[in-house]
Design a protein around this nucleic acid. Sequence first.
DNA 1: AGCTATATGTCGCAG
DNA 2: CTGCGACGTATAGCT
Lengths: 258, 258
Amino acid sequence: MAIGFYPTTIYHRSVTQTNDRTDPATLRTPTHGEALAHVETAIERGDLVTLFGRCTVDYDGRAESYLGPGDRLVVLKPDGTTLVHTEEGQKPVNWQPPGGTLDAELVGDRLRVGSQRTSPSESLEVEFERLTQVSAFDVTDATELSLDGTEEDLRQRILDDPDLVEAGFTPLATERQTAAGAIDIYGTDAEGTTMVVELKRRRVGPDAVGQLRRYVDALRRDLHAEAEIRGVLVAPSVTERARNMLAESGLEFVSLEP
Amino acid sequence: MAIGFYPTTIYHRSVTQTNDRTDPATLRTPTHGEALAHVETAIERGDLVTLFGRCTVDYDGRAESYLGPGDRLVVLKPDGTTLVHTEEGQKPVNWQPPGGTLDAELVGDRLRVGSQRTSPSESLEVEFERLTQVSAFDVTDATELSLDGTEEDLRQRILDDPDLVEAGFTPLATERQTAAGAIDIYGTDAEGTTMVVELKRRRVGPDAVGQLRRYVDALRRDLHAEAEIRGVLVAPSVTERARNMLAESGLEFVSLEP
DNA sequence: AGCTATATGTCGCAG
DNA sequence: CTGCGACGTATAGCT
């Protein structure tokens, strides 16, 4: 191998014994036995582990899948999350959600890493044919993401300035419960007529109209059969089909960016 | 630094010149300049790049976000996908979908990697305060995932044995178009009455009922106002509220596992 | 643990 | 490209 003159095993955390290390423990083209010990130690420590190599993947749970041999990046997180990434796509080709338990073992002479969880019972197994690199990182990240432009922001903006929906709109409640679910903003118009406002942060299709329709119908039942109720969909824009569905249902649309 | 007696720079692909290398090019605690050259070369080659270090993240696009300093794993894929992973959660804390263009540069003395895309216009920028490890992997993976237990499987099972829905059910079309969207399975019952069948691979809530309702309503309009049409939701199970909504709408439920 | 709705959803497919 | 719905959706909030 071309890189033979470099040490294959760079793992040496057992020597340093630091508690707040920032150095990764990385093995390059390790044996499967070396990799196993490395991964076991990392899992024990609560490190984030990355593996790269040729592997197969078995998943069994809500559905079932098998992925034949190929080079992939595998990430094991201390919360049990497991990700298998190929060279393309944002979504992992296989994964395990957080909450499960990680494990690693040798199957014959091959490293197998996996994550198991219950409710629902799901199993993900990654078996390596060839290991290119195995790393362990000590990672604690308390920083929180600050995010703007959500539906929640849109709601706050409307509550601060209800005229954004229409002049005279008066919000009375958010998350008002109905038999069909919670109304985003419940209120009255300038005439005192009840209004159901459904918010979407992006262009809406038929699903959003159906949602609004369910709330308005349920509210009609909850109040009086003949109560006049206006349903308003607030979103940046609406598709043609959704616009037609709004019209058929006697619902309204107000354009508002998040 | 504890590992100073190991070579900091293991990158040496420029020496080997192999086309089908399986060795990763990995830098450990590189300078930002070294890392930049490494990442640029990797992007040029179409490699998958992983970076680990302390960084901040700026996102601007469909929404906006800022993430303060912390240790994270950053993945750059040759298709432009960018992922920023913390120690927990399946979803990246920040990301950029595929299709954009990757870039890397020094901002002052710091490495900044990013991905830009259009329609929608979105930008993701990751700036490193400290670099722990930078790797590049040559990865081509033609293998396809085989997945069982999808809605498509459920549909096929019903088409093979329509009695699974009910004795005498006769499928006439899949994906039949209505003004409200496509019906999963369109057919007739033993009496010849039109049936709209909506399939779900898992337990359903109000949204699925709304969807079925839209299709049935649209079909009533499309055919005749007074045409008798049965709407059937086929799923493993149904929530209480959804069951009530089905009853109120005169719709039916058939339990079937995927 | 189950229910409901949001998401920078992502993804695939059809028009 | 947009529209539309599925997804092993994940995730958060609430009961």
